[in-house]
Structure formats: structure tokens, C-alpha cells
Amino acid sequence: MEIAYTVHARPDTGVYNAKLGMWLFLASEVMLFGGLFSAYVFLRVGAPPDTWPQGWLNVPLGTLNTLLLAASAVTTFLAWAACKARRLDQFKLHTGLTLLLGCIFLGIKGYEYHDKWTHYELRLKDGRIAEGHLVGPKSTAEAVVLKGRWVEDRRQLLDGRRSRGTWQELTIPRADIDRMQNYAPRHNTFLAIYYTMTGLHGLHVLGGVVVFAYLWGPGSRLWHVDPEHFTNRVEVAGLFWHFVDLVWIFLFPVLYLS
């Protein structure tokens, strides 16, 4: 049984089913991320003074990721244009590039997560505070080795911009430690929302990569049967991917730059 307007646009609405369906889905996605962005602003505006960190994230890497994702958005656009021009080779090339860029994006994101996950804040029993990266191989049952710095006041931790240069190796006996916590989501509200939003976004990137891998590989068989239908699929997948890029375009300044 055949459903009408799966391939060709309905004359009065001017769209085919999957396109409308995808736009509806994206509308709901706008509200999903809209809810999270609202939560971010709400929590940030309501945060008690001197609790919101700044410059904790790696801006060069974030910028690079922004550019990578923008480039991949352009390549999906070209993949679709290639399909419309009936150039399967160009489609494969551009989709391959999209896949590659998407994977690099995820790799960089994974590195950033790892970097935060191994970043510790140590509170000593005498009230001193240390922060820095755990040097795993050197840490023992008796002492923790950090590459980091001492701070007098917890508020100094909040500004992450100007400290990296001065970091050195600190060896701290475990017996002195009162509390040791890594920069996991539970550490503070900023990290909580950072992990939640970028994590959800990362899942979307992953989803997009899977879809494009399918279209690039086994899905492209449809090309030989019904190129128009296949072109539609590429267009719709592209819309999704562009949306994922759009979300990042806002995530980057909101999380990295402010």
C-alpha cells in the first residue's frame, strides 16, 4: 500500500510528508533545547553571588568545534545539492566529509569531558584549597599528585582564565584531605548544565552520524531505485543536522564565552 506524497510534494501545501514531519520534529526539538536554555538562564540569573564560574572551558577547542560543525553543515548542504544534480560521487564525498567532521567533533568533545573529569578540587583539613589535574600514575595510596595550584579563597577558583601558566606538580598526602571532588556534573550548577546540555547535544550529533552513515552506506541503494526519494531523505537528514549545528552555535557562546 502506498502513502500519498512520500516522494512528491502535495500541490497545495508544497511539501512532501517527511519534510513536514522533520520540521515538526525540529519544532519540538526547539522546545526541548528551549527548556534547557531557559533553565540555564533561570539558574544563572538566580545564582547566589560568587558562585558562577567563568572561563572554565577551553575556548580554542570550542572555537574549533564550532568551525568543524559549521563546515559539516556546509558539506551536508552540498551533499543534498549533489543529489539534486544527480551526482552520486559528489554525494558520497560530501557525506563522507560530514561523517568525518562529526566524528572529530565528538572526539574533541570527549577529550574536553575527560579533561574536566580528571580535574579536581581538593579541600584540606587545614582549610587550604588546591585544584588541578590528577596525575594518575604518580598518585599512590598515601598521596595524591596534582598538576595544579593552590588558592587562598574558593572564589579564586571561579575565574579559570588566568592561571594555567603557573601550574606545577603538587603532592598532597591523603591524610590531609578533607574533601576531594572532580569536575563532574555534581560539582556545581554550571558543570551540571554544561554536561547535560552538551551531552544531549552530543547524543544528537551521534544520532546524526548514524543516520548519515546509513545513507552513505546501505541506504544509498535507494538511489538506484528512486533517486528522488533518496534525495528527499538526504534533505531531511540534512535539516536535522543543520539543527544540531544551530544548537551548538548557541551553546558555544553561552557556555564557553560568558
Binding site: 508544497g14 511539501v15 522546545m31 553543515a73 539543527f243
Partner: peptide, 27 residues
């Protein structure tokens, strides 16, 4: 740029325009 050029929202039919307008409004 991304929405207007790459997602070609600008050339899209008005069903989609109306949908997006409402979504943005509710957001």
C-alpha cells in the same frame, strides 16, 4: 545564515513558516 541559507527556510512554504513562528513564540 545556517537556518536561512543551508536549511533554506527563506524559500520554504508558509506551512513551515507558520510552524516555526509559533514555536519561537512559545519558546
Amino acid at each position: 545564515l545556517v537556518a536561512g541559507r543551508l536549511m533554506h527556510v527563506l524559500q520554504e512554504r508558509h506551512v513551515i513558516f507558520v510552524l516555526l513562528a509559533f514555536t519561537v513564540l512559545f519558546f
